[in-house]
Design a binder for these strands. Structure first.
Length: 405
DNA sequence: TCTGGGGTCCTAGGACCC
DNA sequence: TCTGGGGTCCTAGGACCC
């Protein structure tokens, strides 16, 4: 049976939500109506565009470019900071509204959801429902969305990307040729800046060109990714709407340093603080790891990473930091100024399942008691309330930006 | 000019074994 | 002097997404 999938995408999410928040607080200018962007912090060397208004877009500003470039294109540009906590609240309010239509919702990101409406239509017309959702989001929540309708996730997502803002589009199988094939190939989901020039060299310029290219040729040239892009160009996608919350497969954090650092001890101090954040989240998820990965970025934007294994499953800050420090030292032979440092834990295993099957491999030294006590205090009084002694002097350096995406 | 942070998935190539 | 080949496991790095 053919599925009925919706993709709901908030228009200029961070900017729209910031606009609403400002209006709520008595500001009179709606920043959606002027050339404006949400940007990172230039002093912390994260000065990039995170979201833009329509007027900023008309100036040629795009997401991810530097604020410096954006100002060149649009001298009267207004730049605002984001508030991730607030964004989460707006995202939750959207999710709650959508739950009135189906519980089969995949929260793809903070501002995008897939809905599997197949079993919930009850004879109703999918286009009418999409229009109703669109109107209700605007009247009840105050921001606009684009909604794409199709029989799979890929096509629904492509559809929601058509004309914006505040629009509902369909892209059913029979519409692929008319609506999607004429688009430039870079518009296709999963075709990024590295692949597009290669396709161009093969004289593949539109999604239609790609769809009509020999599948085996693409496989030979691009491997699995070639296969995937051919399927997407032809509107083929069987993936399910994942509506049950999934456990994370990895947890990581990283920070761009306000200044390049060349001193190993300094880097270790920062790494400890990052490790604490990661382990706090790891324990919150009730997951264990034995795989640790440390990443460095040099001042020239070259990335390095090393990963290593711990002999047992653990969530202990001490054990994970011990390994992380080892990895950092191993790598630091480069002796080059470091711009970014990060840590992530991978191949996570559920605490309960791990203890059942692999109990002899779990870290059962009682070290966990201290971590637990610290976690409880952090939960009660806020994350920054408790700091290991050595971290205090770094706190100013690396206070984290709350912005993502 | 300056270039975020948090994820997932894939692949090339090295180590090791038979 | 010539240096197989297949399989598995692992890591570093890269591509892509929002």
């Amino acid at each position: 049976m053919e599925r009925k999938i919706l993709h709901v995408d908030v228009n200029n999410a961070f900017l729209s939500w910031t606009a609403l928040e400002r209006l709520k607080n008595g500001e009179t200018v709606d920043i959606r109506e002027i050339p404006a962007v949400i940007g990172g912090d230039e002093e912390r060397r994260s000065g990039i565009v995170l979201a833009k208004s329509m007027k900023a877009k008309i100036c040629g500003i795009y997401t991810g470019e530097t604020l410096y470039m954006a100002r060149q294109k649009c001298p009267n540009l207004q730049v605002f900071k984001g508030d991730y906590q607030k964004y989460k609240e707006y995202s939750n309010s959207l999710y709650k509204l959508l739950l009135e239509y189906t519980d089969k919702i995949e929260r793809y990101s903070i501002d995008e959801c897939f809905l599997d409406m197949t079993e919930y239509l009850q004879g109703k017309n999918i286009l009418e429902i999409a229009n109703e959702i669109s109107k209700r989001v605007y009247s009840e929540l105050g921001f606009t969305v684009n909604i794409g309708i199709s029989s799979n996730k890929l096509l629904a997502k492509m559809a929601s990307d058509f004309e914006k803002p505040n629009k509902v589009h369909t892209l059913f199988k029979e519409e692929i040729e008319g609506k999607m094939w004429k688009l430039p190939v870079k518009e296709l989901f999963m075709l990024g800046r590295k692949t597009v020039p290669k396709l161009f060299n093969m004289r593949i310029k539109t999604i239609g060109d790609l769809a009509r290219t020999d599948r085996n040729l693409l496989f030979k040239k691009f491997g699995k990714h070639g296969n995937l892009m051919w399927e997407y160009a032809n509107g083929i996608d069987d993936s399910e709407v994942i509506y049950k919350p999934e456990k994370p497969k990895g947890i990581g954090t990283s920070i761009t340093l306000p200044n390049d650092i060349i001193n190993l001890e300094k880097l270790e101090e920062i790494l400890l603080e990052l490790t604490e954040q990661v382990c706090f989240r790891l324990r919150k998820e009730k997951m264990l790891t034995r795989s640790v990965n440390v990443q460095l970025r040099t001042k020239d934007f070259i990335d390095f990473s090393h990963q290593g294994k711990i002999d047992f499953l653990t969530d202990s800050t001490k054990e994970i930091y011990k390994k992380a420090k080892e990895l950092l030292r191993e790598m630091y032979k480069l002796n080059t100024p470091v711009r970014l440092i990060g840590i992530r834990v991978d191949k996570l295993e559920d605490e309960n399942e791990a203890q059942m099957s692999l109990f002899e491999n779990v870290d059962n030294k009682k070290q966990g008691v201290l971590d637990k006590t610290i976690d409880e205090l952090k939960n009660k009084y806020g994350y920054t309330s408790i700091v290991r002694g050595t971290n205090v002097k770094n706190r100013e350096n690396i206070r984290k930006s709350k912005i993502i995406e």
